[in-house]
C-alpha cells in the first residue's frame, strides 16, 4: 500500500461520518425548506414575512448586544484577574468559569430565581419601591441569561491573551508620554483584537442559536430558535422551520465572516 492511499484510508471514517451525520441531513434540510407551498421562495419568507423579519432583527440585536456587553465586562474582568494577585483569586476565577458546565435550562432557572415572580430583584424592589420588578420572562431576562452564559467563555480567552501581552509595549508607550487611557487605546486593545474577534464570534453564535434558556424562560419570546421550535412542533410546518434553520445558519455565518474580514485575522468561525 502506498503512503498516499494509506492516508486516504485513514480519512475514510471521517468521510463516512461527515456524510452520514452532517452533509446528508443538511442537504435534506435544504431540500425540505424548498418543499413548502411557496417552493424555493419559502427561503425568502424569513426576510419578507413581517413576523419572521421582526424575529430575525430581534435575534440579531440580542446576539449583538450580548456580544458587546460580554466583551466589555469580560475584558475589564479578565485584564484585572490576569494582572493582579490577591487572596481568593483562584476561587474567584473558578467561580466565574463555573457556569461553563451549565446547560441553558439551568441558566434560565437561575434567571427566574433572580428576576422572576418570586425572584430576588422582585422581592427587593417590592420592599423598597412597593412595586415588584419582574423581567425574567422577557427578552431582558434572556439577555441576562446569555450574558451569564457567554462571560465565562470570553473571560478565559481574554485572560490567555492578556497573559501573552508584552508588558514592555505598555511601558514603552508610557515612556513616550502616553496616559493610561492612551496606552489602552493605542497598545493594549489593538493587541487584544484577535482575542476579541475569536471570543466575540463564539458569544455571538451562541446567542443566535441558544434555545434552552429561552425555552425555560417563556415560550413567547421572539427569537429565531423559538420560532423554529413553534413552527416545527406546534404548527408542524416542516418546510418553514427548515427554511428558517438554514436562514439562521447562513446569517450567523455571514456576520461572523464579516467580523473576521474586518479584523483580518484567522479565527475559527464557530457555528
Amino acid at each position: 500500500m502506498s503512503h498516499r492511499s494509506f492516508v486516504w484510508l485513514c480519512l475514510l471514517p471521517l468521510a463516512v461520518v461527515t456524510a452520514a451525520f452532517f452533509l446528508l441531513p443538511m442537504a435534506r434540510l435544504v431540500v425540505t425548506g424548498a418543499e413548502g407551498p411557496q417552493g424555493v421562495a419559502g427561503y425568502l419568507a424569513i426576510l419578507t414575512e413581517p413576523r419572521y423579519r421582526a424575529t430575525l432583527i430581534n435575534t440579531v440585536a440580542l446576539a449583538a448586544a450580548t456580544t458587546i456587553v460580554t466583551l466589555i465586562v469580560a475584558t475589564i474582568a479578565g485584564m484585572f484577574l490576569q494582572r493582579h494577585r490577591f487572596p481568593g483569586r483562584a476561587v474567584l476565577i473558578a467561580m466565574l468559569t463555573f457556569p461553563l458546565a451549565f446547560p441553558g435550562v439551568v441558566i434560565g432557572f437561575l434567571i427566574i430565581l433572580l428576576a422572576g415572580r418570586q425572584g430576588l430583584i422582585g422581592d427587593l424592589s417590592n420592599r423598597m419601591l412597593g412595586e415588584k420588578l419582574v423581567f425574567a420572562y422577557s427578552i431582558y431576562g434572556l439577555f441576562l441569561g446569555y450574558l451569564y452564559f457567554s462571560i465565562p467563555r470570553v473571560i478565559l480567552t481574554i485572560m490567555a491573551a492578556v497573559q501573552k501581552l508584552d508588558v514592555g509595549l505598555e511601558e514603552a508607550a508610557r515612556s513616550l508620554g502616553a496616559s493610561p487611557w492612551a496606552v489602552q487605546r493605542d497598545v493594549v486593545l489593538p493587541a487584544l483584537a484577535p482575542a476579541f474577534v475569536a471570543s466575540g464570534a463564539i458569544a455571538f453564535a451562541t446567542a443566535m442559536g441558544a434555545f434552552g434558556t429561552a425555552f425555560t424562560l417563556a415560550t413567547n419570546i421572539d427569537v429565531l430558535p423559538m420560532l423554529i421550535y413553534t413552527e416545527f412542533t406546534l404548527a408542524a410546518n416542516f418546510s418553514t422551520s427548515a427554511a428558517l434553520s438554514v436562514g439562521l445558519g447562513i446569517i450567523t455565518w455571514f456576520i461572523l465572516a464579516l467580523a473576521r474580514s474586518f479584523s483580518g485575522s484567522a479565527v475559527a468561525a464557530a457555528g
Binding site: A172, S175, G177
Partner: peptide, 20 residues
C-alpha cells in the same frame, strides 16, 4: 512623578515596538 511625565526616552531589550 510617573514615567509618562518624566520626559525620558527608553530603549528596551525586546525593543517593544508597537506591532499595530
Amino acid at each position: 512623578v510617573p514615567i509618562e511625565r518624566r520626559n525620558v526616552g527608553m530603549v528596551f531589550q525586546s525593543y517593544a515596538l508597537f506591532p499595530n
